[in-house]
């Protein structure tokens, strides 16, 4: 092309000087991972980490999620005292867990407890992908199983927000068995008449998608969330063909009949409120 000959070439790169670096406090602004637009941190918080420009749903920490849903000061945490051991004596595992414990302030990859959403009490478990990718080890499995038992005993509904890369490799088969353990707990809860709502957030894959995440009475997902059993790369290697861009997204699952609904984060609280109220009648009879 002719215009290529007239391209403007910059001779020098612009480097912000020390003074201008100091002027912007750390974390005042935040850039969207997808469209790269920059907004004030305040605006992100108000928007529950959804990009005001492109609607991209950024991951939420477990506590930000809880604060976005529960009436202020009503959430009571359960089983914070449970901590991870190293059952296979896996090299370096304890250090990794310690690091993430310090980074996130959580004891493990899930926060469980109960609280009040718009006047209605419910049990809730929220996974946090910042803690070892939200992977499920013994503590995650135990906390979720206990939360289901508590919900059963207190006749509360159970809402779970999943965010997990799947099994915790460093706990080997014990991690795999948490899939069975939590599923047995779901069954007991369900047989007692309990309402279980599963909300899959980015990402929900492997052993978590193939256990409690997929067996709620209602299965929802946030827009664009990656949800699937096997990893995309493994599938591409196996079938030797390229997969569509939307493969294993929430929208893909909805299209294939695997979800009840894709729910925008801003509508989550109102949907859960209505849903809880619609099931309140049944609970009284349990």
């Amino acid at each position: 092309m002719l215009k290529d000959f007239f391209g403007k070439k910059r001779k020098y790169a612009t480097i912000p000087n020390e003074e201008s670096k100091i002027d912007i406090p750390e974390g005042l602004m935040k850039k969207c991972d997808k469209c790269h637009k920059i907004y004030y941190r305040k605006e992100w918080n108000k928007n529950i980490n959804v990009c005001p420009n492109c609607d991209y749903h950024h991951p939420l920490t477990a506590w930000d999620r809880i604060n976005s849903l529960f009436d202020e000061g009503t959430f009571v945490e359960w089983d914070r005292q449970l901590t991870t051991t190293n059952p296979l004596a896996f090299p370096g595992y304890e250090e990794k867990v310690d690091k993430d414990r310090n980074k996130t302030g959580l004891n493990e990859g899930v926060v469980t407890g109960k609280g009040i959403i718009d006047g209605q009490e419910t049990a809730c478990s929220v996974m946090d992908s910042n803690f070892r990718m939200g992977s499920m080890g013994s503590v995650v499995g135990e906390k979720i199983s206990r939360a289901l038992e508590n919900a059963k005993n207190e006749s509360l509904p159970f809402i779970i927000f999943t965010a997990s890369g799947g099994a915790r490799m460093q706990e080997g088969v014990l991690s795999l068995m948490q899939m069975s353990k939590t599923s047995v707990a779901v069954k007991r809860f369900s047989d007692a008449g309990g309402l279980m709502v599963s909300v899959m957030t980015h990402p929900t894959t492997g052993g978590v998608s193939a256990s409690f995440a997929s067996i709620g009475d209602y299965n929802f997902a946030e827009p664009g969330a990656l949800i699937g059993f096997a990893g995309r790369r493994i599938i591409e290697q196996t079938i030797r063909e390229e997969l569509p861009d939307d493969f294993q997204t929430a929208e893909f699952l909805l299209k294939h009949g695997q979800l009840d609904k894709v729910v925008h984060r801003h509508e989550m609280k109102s949907l859960l409120t209505v849903l809880l109220s619609m099931h309140a009648q049944g609970r009284k009879n349990v």
């Binding site: 047995v184 779901v186 193939a210 256990s211 995440a213 997929s214 699937g228 096997a230 009949g257």
Partner: peptide
């Protein structure tokens, strides 16, 4: 681990059996 398996709900099928 295949495309069709994901479309037809591999996760749900396994999860359902566990439960």
């Amino acid at each position: 681990p295949g495309k069709a398996a994901e479309e037809r709900g591999q996760s749900e099928a396994i999860a359902r059996n566990l439960m």
